[in-house]
Design a protein around this nucleic acid. Structure first.
Lengths: 404, 404
DNA sequence: GTTGCTTGTTAAATTTGTTGACAAAGCACA
DNA sequence: TGTGCTTTGTCAACAAATTTAACAAGCAAC
């Protein structure tokens, strides 16, 4: 290993990374165009392109039209030059994907975690990664993995500080995974990887300031600001679930009152429906739960509301109202270009959107409101794992050109 | 003029800028320490230090202690090596300051603007700058000026989009000032320069993620993220005054209900005190207003509370409670290192701080709460103009080493 | 005083990128 | 078809910034 800090060497790395990004977004490029876009000379552009060609990231695809002189050789971006690994943990399972450089899923795998310990989770991940990587050309896989985990994560240290739903505290997940799998490991919590997935190739593609809200058993926001994850001082920015909506509302595990999570998470919605059922409400939810109100789920409530059920509709409107307050606050504070609703409820919650938008329009300030769009995610169930893979894709050029 | 892009040349500029920042924050430094902090070799560190010495930014101040070998030469940061110009427009006046590299005010000037046109404002600024720069050594003044202006500003373009209180729209202020004064010009919203002032040399010095909250007739937050102003998609991030605290609270001009501004701004506090007085409350506020409850001000309420007045104390606790909710939400969402309370009430509100902290501790999540400090501003009335000067100071090294 | 260690400085080597020259490859027009 | 013009691709010489290695300077400890 060479310990030279090597500032001139850094330049090459920076320029290669820029060339990579430019090629990736342009898709097809000539050497002179690359020179123009990077601001470098033709000679250097040619050198950079040679590295891109050697790595397989660029491929010759013939000649372009002449503009009165020698026609330029055209180079095309090859998104399948390398693959990225991403894994997302949810409900004691790992969803693992291999994506190409565009974030398109090449291979997927879902495996259970045998018990609730971090060790079992890492062992399962190890097994899963071995299985999934056996299905594709090994050499293409970048030697790194991105993880989307529950709880609060210190991304710098790669440590899960607290994950209440699995009862983990101070788990040095990066060290564990790096040791067992021998892969550079990047960790982020679920809200943040969701935001990355949207930013990379979902609804927020090509935008620079977006907020992704994941609504499920918990509620988390991932904030992308100027193209980068907004981390905060210790990686815990975006804890939307514990924002106070009702100062005197129901008490929350976190000690606060009236947290958003206590009002509109899946369990909270189910609880509310359950209470209404026990009061003997007249609703088609009965046809879904039989005579057992305790079987009601948030998903059922949304389905019933979509079918025009009044009682379920009332609950959905109430949810929309609370979520609308939270989103209006986000609009006023962060002034984003786009807010994406994702997670289990975000995707089935179409019936939620109309009353939600109404509430946001009522509460947010006109000027920031004028630039923001609010949409539901159109990414499938792989979104989380893809977002985790994006943690690797963000460093793709670095990893591709690291050793040579 | 030389048009070479010169990548290797850029390295020197980057390293000089880093060396400058390191010296500025360390205050006293040896060459080996600089080498260690930059990650560069001792040889390069010496070269950089030579440039710093030549520019007058560093000065020899003797030798350090030997650690078993030759004692290192110590170099001290000289904050008076260069001066920055900042101007803030308020109430048809310019407050202009010259600061040193630490943002300490060297000279101040306050001049009126003759009429309400942008042209008159620029002319007055021109006059003021000529006057104030005549009082100090001309060569030290960096050829640039920072402006804090009213309204919404497009910082990239240097254009004031809309400034309702002076009735300006689409004013290309940067172009106007650059043409007339021949100084590079940086423009920012008046509300956000306060955050910059704190970030640069107030309570938030050396921190990277801070939020400045100005509490006065209105309430605004300025957010500094990774050392840069958080602008948002159209420069309106940080509208804390219109965040919803009480979903069913009093109606606000903006159309929303329960905005923070309706609960704890100066007029809101005065209103609340007035109502209590009219109810015939027993309070020493009567000694301040005589028999005229309408004369009560927020400042009086705080003074009375500080003197132990129960009624005023109740109002302050209520204010603390609402503000605490807002701040706890900021902590959960932005995960800052520091929150500074400024503006008229921020500075006299010491009595507010204790119940405020209590409320924040009750409501914010433990992990982000563990890194955040909440303090009151200790900057004086020049804060706005200093913040404007910071727009220049942020580019100080670039300006100092530009031509040579 | 000698030995050992750290600091300061210098020269040679290394890396990266630019410049300028020139061949290659096409277009345009006679 | 041939000539002039333009753009592209490449190579050698040069420039900028940094590192490495070597050595002198300066102090501590024995």
């Amino acid at each position: 290993m060479n310990y030279r800090i090597g500032q001139p060497e850094l330049l090459k790395e920076i320029n290669l990374s820029r060339a990579f990004d430019i090629l990736k977004s342009a898709r097809i490029l000539s050497r002179p165009v690359l020179a123009h876009q990077t601001g470098l000379s033709r000679a250097t552009s040619a050198v950079l392109m040679e590295d891109l060609l050697r790595a397989g990231v660029a491929k010759h695809v013939g000649l372009g039209d002449s503009t009165g002189g020698r026609p330029p050789a055209l180079l095309e971006f090859n998104p399948d030059a390398a693959y990225a690994l991403g894994a997302r943990m949810v409900d004691h399972r790992w969803g693992i994907v291999i994506t190409n450089l565009d974030g398109r899923v090449v291979q997927r795998l879902d495996i259970p975690i045998l018990n609730h310990t971090p060790e079992a989770a890492v062992a399962a991940l190890h097994e899963g990664v071995k299985t999934i990587t056996a299905t594709v050309e090994q050499a293409r896989i970048l030697p790194a993995i991105g993880l989307g985990t529950p709880g609060l994560v210190d991304m710098e240290a790669g440590v899960i500080k607290t994950a209440v739903d699995v009862n983990w505290f101070e788990v040095p997940i990066r060290a564990m995974v790096e040791e067992q799998l021998g892969l550079r490991t990047f960790v982020a919590n679920r809200g943040k990887v969701g935001a990355l997935a949207e930013y990379w190739h979902g609804a927020a593609r090509n935008l620079r300031d977006i907020i992704y809200i994941s609504i499920g058993t918990g509620i988390a926001a991932g904030i992308v600001h100027e193209g980068k994850l907004f981390m905060g001082a210790n990686s815990s920015a975006g804890e939307l679930g514990h924002v106070t909506i009702l100062p005197d509302g129901p008490i929350c595990r976190c000690g606060n009152r009236g947290c958003l999570q206590q009002l509109i998470s899946e369990p909270a919605i189910a609880d509310r429906a359950r209470a209404r059922l026990r009061e003997g409400g007249d609703t088609i939810l009965w046809t879904m739960v039989g005579t057992y109100p305790e079987r009601v789920t948030a998903e059922m409530v949304f389905q019933a509301a979509e079918q025009g059920d009044l009682l379920a509709g009332e609950i959905v409107v109430e949810v929309a109202r609370y979520l609308g307050i939270a989103i209006a606050n986000l609009v006023n504070l962060f002034n984003p270009e786009l807010i994406v609703l994702g997670g289990p409820l975000g995707q089935i919650g179409q019936v939620l959107l109309e009353p939600l938008l109404e509430e946001v329009r009522r509460r947010a300030m006109a000027y920031p409101l004028s630039v923001v769009k609010i949409v539901t995610s159109d990414m499938g169930p792989d979104a989380g794992a893809i977002g985790a893979a994006v943690l690797v894709l963000q460093r793709a050029s670095e990893l591709i050109f690291a050793d040579k």
